[in-house]
Design a binder for these strands. Structure first.
Lengths: 169, 169
DNA sequence: AGTTATATATATCGAACTGATAGGTCCATT
DNA sequence: AATGGACCTATCAGTTCGATATATATAACT
């Protein structure tokens, strides 16, 4: 999914500024399956506005940059709808942890148990965060997606927890 | 992890050409947690060679481009070892499926059950592929990593399978 | 026999994206 | 009073992607 569609989709859930979109994809309930930088979001919003797929209302603020609140237009909604008809592309998962684990065997085997323990702690942290978010989710789909993330995190945690003793001996 | 470290790591497991590295990260047992294009691999190999971290043996071939077989140098092994000491950065997961699911609720709710069914089929396919690879894995760590992937895929599949009826009514 | 597809292998290039940063205010904690 | 984080827009160098060019061998269709 390109940034354009991502922005359209987020705006289909409610109006937002570029800053808020960035926060959603980077920290919010979108963060475990998406990511985008200002350098891609702001140009995308500008272009989508030019094309009439979203609309921009400037809210004047005295002591900081005027807030630009974007909303989805009817044309934009149609484009989004059309995008959702085609099959989503396969996931892209990049994990330094798994790569490190694989490479450590040859050059730094003593590091492996630490690596796994740190990762388990990381999963626990993620699980807690997602669990806390669960109360705040409203829509059926957003809850479903959040719990998908939870299920995956828990499976990973359990796998590591059960399997780490393979590297103790 | 940048491409440079990824190349060092792969070469720590055995010598390879750029083409083979690309195949490993794109299709092999690395494919579910890494990805890289020719446009990044070839320049990285050239630069690593200039810096003496890897070595290049050209194998002359009559009717196709000379094969350049890269191997890790002692200096490269040290750099890799050092890289593995610092904590791996958090994973980056991009899922068009989850985004589509979330966005579909507002603009194309009828699409959701299809989306989920296609995804289950996709997971089944991935699970089969990973299971088949299991026999071929040799190292302790590579088997562990592969089975991590399997555990995650299975958890996702089961979650979708159990939860999809939430969207039938 | 001829066409098409896939595998081998290198390499480049425009487009897209990241990560860091600039610029400035308000607010909370130390 | 000072440091750091939240807010909000925006740009830019550097990295990476995705597609493509080049060239041959082999296997599989028609």
């Amino acid at each position: 999914m390109d940034i354009r569609t991502l922005c359209l989709g987020i705006l289909s859930l409610g109006n937002a500024t570029g800053y808020e979109i960035k926060k959603l994809v980077g920290e919010g309930s979108f963060s475990f399956f998406s990511e985008a930088s200002y350098g891609s979001i702001y140009p995308a919003l500008t272009k989508l506005t030019e094309e009439g797929l979203i609309e921009c209302k400037e809210k004047v603020q005295s002591k900081r940059p005027d807030k630009k609140i974007y909303s989805l237009s009817d044309a934009g909604r149609k484009v989004l709808e059309h995008s959702l008809q085609s099959a989503p592309k396969p996931d892209k998962n990049k994990s330094e942890f798994l790569a490190a684990l694989l490479f450590a065997e040859a050059v730094a085997p003593d590091r492996i148990p630490d690596l796994i323990d740190e990762r388990i702690a990381h999963h626990d942290h993620q699980i807690k965060q997602l669990s806390d978010m669960r109360n705040q989710e409203d829509g059926k789909a957003s809850l479903f997606v959040l719990e998908y993330g939870l299920a995956v995190q828990k499976a990973a945690r359990d796998y590591l927890s059960n399997g780490k003793n393979r590297f103790n001996g």
